[in-house]
């Protein structure tokens, strides 16, 4: 079995460099045959694309998509400096 450390590095690089994702802020953890993706993106389509790219970069492993969606709320309180 490939060393999890290198699998995680490969997935992380793929997420950053693949034109479908170009996501730099996704955390990738590999435990045995399980790959965990964590982070935040702004729409569901991007969340799915990240999972697809991760699956291609880690064939045969089980990818858990734990990425959450950023909910952009209306502006809140001002800060007085």
């Amino acid at each position: 079995m490939e060393t999890p450390h290198y699998v995680a590095a490969r997935v992380q690089r793929a997420l950053a460099e693949d034109e479908r994702t170009t996501e730099l802020g996704i955390r990738v953890d590999v435990r045995g045959e399980q790959v965990y993706l964590r982070g935040q993106v702004s729409c569901d389509e991007r969340r799915h694309q990240i999972e697809n790219v991760a699956r291609e970069a880690a064939p045969g492993l089980h990818v858990h998509n734990e990425i959450s969606l950023v909910e952009v709320r209306e502006p809140g309180e001002e800060e007085h400096l």
């Binding site: 935040q40 702004s42 950023v70 952009v72 209306e74 502006p75 001002e78 800060e79 007085h80 400096l81």
Partner: peptide
């Protein structure tokens, strides 16, 4: 100098408002 990181995933709002020079905005 006050520094503010306004990356959308950090502020989680469409924008944040900072008021300079006064107590009331």
């Amino acid at each position: 100098i006050r520094v503010r990181n306004v990356a959308l995933p950090v502020i989680k709002h469409a924008y944040t408002v900072y008021c300079l020079n006064g107590d009331d905005c």
